[in-house]
Design a protein around this nucleic acid. Structure first.
Lengths: 125, 125
DNA sequence: CTATATGCAAAAAGTTTGCATCTCC
DNA sequence: GGAGATGCAAACTTTTTGCATATAG
């Protein structure tokens, strides 16, 4: 079995986004002696093929997540438990497109991440 | 004069976002012997005080820009020339809030970046 | 003199690359 | 035997920290 599968499995089992180092740690915890370099190489390849989403965390770390669909979508992530849901954001798509065009921009792409505390993790629940 | 002013000036004169290293280089080019560490320290402080926006570029580098307003806003960035415009995104604010609530999320925060090619940089202009 | 600001260089953190090995064909 | 995959360690890049000096009050 290739390491590609290990990375894929780690991502599949994750609740939200994982950093390369997280994935590395998870796979090794599972008893598979993978190397950090391999994880990065695989992640790059998967990102290039559009198999995973890449989002830079606030502290400069890249985090990855399996794309459920190749279609464009956004995420709603719980800051406490890391649970993430993919959202189909038609409104935002159109808004982004419109605003960009107003300013003369083309080939528009965008990143939208909504971070919140989910019901389960809310302090005053 | 404090180095804070040098950094502020560098940002003020910049067309778009500058990385810490850019700022460092610019100030030194101007003849002022500032240190990289000072630039980072100042930038951190300014960001903490909400004086500058911080946006992570695709390759993990943080870029900074003076905030025109302290209110929440988003950016429209040209992927070619780096020119960025601040947007007031009422639609998105509300959408994010609504979607999050639908999923039972609270304390919602969000990140919205629109990247495109501006008219000036469009290939088939 | 004490506190803050600053610079230099070393240290961290995250990521990439070089190179040898190992496997599959 | 050769191509591609993999692991380890070294190299790199960006950012942070330690420490000594300089400056302000």
């Amino acid at each position: 079995m290739s390491r590609r599968d290990d990375v894929h499995a780690a991502l599949r089992e994750a609740p939200g986004f994982l950093s390369a180092q997280d994935i590395y740690a998870r796979i090794r915890s599972g008893g598979t002696p993978i190397g950090l370099a391999t994880v990065y190489r695989l992640l790059q390849a998967m990102a290039a093929q559009g198999q995973v989403d890449v989002v830079r965390s606030g502290d400069g770390e890249a985090t990855y997540r399996l794309c459920r669909s190749t279609a464009h979508h956004h995420h709603l992530v719980c800051r406490a438990c890391g649970r993430a849901e993919e959202l189909d954001a038609d409104v935002v798509e159109r808004w982004a497109q419109a605003v960009a065009e107003e300013h003369g921009f083309t080939a528009v792409d965008h990143v939208v991440e909504i971070i919140g505390t989910c019901a389960r993790c809310a302090p005053d629940d």
